[in-house]
Design a protein around this nucleic acid. Structure first.
Length: 559
RNA sequence: UGGGGUAUCGCCAAGUUGGUAAGGCAACGGGUUUUGAUCCCGUCAUUCCCAGGUUCGAGUCCUGGUACCCCAGCCA
């Protein structure tokens, strides 16, 4: 998909290069993206997706999409559907069918039985509180459970009863028998199976016992033949358990012919972006409490939000490549994301004119009723995009901010008594302003120089160029301006909590804007550059009644 | 506090037998321009968390510190 040469190397690619050189895994590279369907995907997931799918693509390998659905309480089909859609939208295609860890529940159960038979797993019928208490802490070793040495047959019988539903939630768990004194807390006889009497979005009521992540993941990776299991840094301390599980199950899985590869786990730093939050819990809270309009709100760092905001899959992939992959905790500046989308849209977005805060301007020497269809290039550097018709009439709108009564040093706007170029049109001069009873400027009376279409006036230099839209033909529309969702670079660290630093001005809705008629009726997701303003896309709220545009990102401004 | 990690420019990030600090974002100059956009040119780490040491030579090796992140869910 992407030219490999463009993708900067990173420590994981180097590990794969070395593995390949050593002939490991028969030269195969198989990765997986393993989301839990308990929320929408965000830009942080995009990093993992691009890493996993990108590696598979550049090494001629495969990448699986596997839902890590072992906790039915928090998961749902809505999330499964949104995740599939987002991965595809990003431009990736998973190998084979979508997989679910729940597809493997029977085999995982058999693995548990195998562990019991091997004497390295036991059923603990203590309360969750007792188990927690016995785990000890960083300074004190844990205490062995009184059930740690239960006979294999008893464990088998108890585990069967767990599956049969004989116990209530919390009354019994299956635990690995490792080391209650391990300095690694994850190795202090971790829970492998717990009881959850809730129906599962994939398996319904087939099960009332569910395997834990630490047990499920290595088994799922192994049976899918995953060679490189990439996850984030916080799972580093779990790696010994990942390896313990596979070391203890390799024989069993091989005997069932379900061990195509011995996977290895590698951890990389998750993506953080400043001025936003990335945890699913917090994003869900923003949605549930109505601080934003759903997971797909254009202000959200979710992929659906970025999509509605006007980001392209290409820009997001490019951004992930720009940010890189390493093991150091880091927070990428939002400016890098913006640079990625500007780069893309600058090349691909047709130009158009839209007046956000209309101020009427009447050209007194323009023949009344005359309409001149101007042909303006859709892109100044790409003539293959062609031209669009832009009607020029006696009355037009310009932005209120583009008119000044008094000249300001080096300004490039229209000043009373001076000239300005109308983009793609003529040079005009502002002669007089009309005001209403409150003194508010309501209209500017101008004259135009008929000899300035496509050429500069003789002997004079106009101070600048402003955009405009015909008052008669301009299409009224709504424009939604977005700003960062939070006022602090790191909302997670806010004294009063992340909600206390929500930006009250993250959304500004402008009504009565005027866009040039060439854009009337274009479909949602179409992207344009509104000259001198920024990049905008058509929002799905656009209907027969009114067009709605979302600000994707503003133009760079340098004075 | 025990264990596991990480520290290279404002933000990311290369640097892999020690040989004399890539690139991107941002910023700042200048040029082109009917978008204060784009594009183009240029500037931007005598220094790699700190302190010692080894060496002709260290971001890379050794010793000792410091800071930050992760782990005590029957979450992932």
């Amino acid at each position: 998909m992407t030219d490999r040469a463009e993708i900067p190397t990173n420590f994981i690619r180097q590990i794969i290069d070395r593995d390949l050189a050593e002939g490991k895994n028969g030269g195969k590279v198989v990765t997986r993206f393993p989301p839990e369907p308990n929320g929408y995907l965000h830009i942080g997931h995009a990093k993992s997706i691009c890493l996993n799918f990108g590696i598979a693509a550049s090494y001629g390998g495969a990448c699986h999409l596997r839902f890590d659905d072992t906790n039915p309480e928090k998961e749902s089909d809505e999330y499964v559907a949104s995740i599939k859609r987002d991965v595809e939208w990003l431009g990736w295609r998973w190998d084979g069918e979508v997989r679910f860890a729940s597809d493997y529940f029977e085999l995982i159960h058999d693995c548990a039985v195998a562990l019991i038979n091997a004497g390295v797993a036991y059923v603990d019928t203590q309360s969750p509180e007792d188990i927690a208490r016995q785990r000890g802490d960083f300074t004190h070793p844990g205490q062995n459970s009184p059930h740690r040495d239960r006979a294999v047959d008893d464990n088998l019988a108890l585990f069967a009863r767990m599956r049969a539903g004989d116990f209530n939630e919390g009354e019994a768990v299956l635990r690995a028998r490792i080391d209650m004194a391990s300095p690694n807390m994850n190795l202090r006889d971790p829970v492998l199976y717990r009881i959850r009497k809730v129906s599962h979005h994939q398996t319904g009521d087939t099960w009332c016992i569910y395997p834990m992540y630490d047990f499920t993941h290595p088994i799922s990776d192994a049976i899918e033949g995953i060679t490189h299991s990439l996850c984030t840094l916080e799972f580093e301390a779990h790696r010994p358990l990942y390896d313990w599980t596979l070391d203890n199950l390799a024989g069993f899985l091989a005997s069932r012919d379900r061990l195509p590869a011995r996977p290895r786990q590698y951890e990389f730093a998750r993506l953080n972006l400043n001025y936003t939050v990335m945890s699913k819990r917090k994003l869900k809270q923003l949605v549930d409490e109505g601080h934003v309009n759903g997971w797909g709100d254009p202000r959200m760092p979710t992929l659906s939000g970025l999509r509605r905001r006007g980001y392209t899959p290409e820009a997001i992939r490019r951004f992930c490549d720009m940010a890189g992959v390493a093991r150091a905790d880091s927070t990428v500046d939002t400016g890098m994301l913006e640079a990625a989308i500007r780069d893309d849209l600058n090349v691909h977005a047709p130009r158009a004119m839209c007046v956000l805060r209309p101020l009427k301007l009447v050209i007194e020497n323009w023949p009344a009723g005359q309409v001149e269809q101007l042909q303006i290039a859709k892109h100044p550097q790409d003539e293959s995009m062609g031209f669009r018709d832009v009607p020029m009439t006696q009355e037009i709108f310009i932005d209120r901010e583009d008119f000044l009564l008094e000249p300001v040093r080096k300004t490039k706007r229209l000043v009373l008594g001076d000239e300005i170029r109308l983009r793609g049109s003529y040079v005009i001069r502002a002669n007089e302003v009309l005001r209403d009873a409150q003194g508010e400027i309501t209209e500017i009376r101008c004259t135009y120089d008929p000899d300035t279409l496509g050429k500069n006036p003789e002997g004079r230099k106009v101070r600048g160029v402003i955009h405009w839209v015909s008052a008669e033909y301009g299409v009224p529309c709504q424009v939604r301006l977005y700003d960062r969702l939070f006022t602090e670079a790191n909302p997670d660290r806010a004294e009063q909590g992340f909600l206390s630093v929500l930006n009250p001005d993250s959304l500004t809705v402008l009504e009565g804007c005027r866009v040039e008629p060439a854009l009337a009726g274009v479909a949602p997701e179409a992207r344009f550059q509104f000259e001198r303003e920024g990049y905008f896309c058509v929002d799905p709220d656009s209907g027969a009644g009114e067009m709605v545009f979302n600000l994707t990102v503003g133009l760079r401004e340098s004075f």
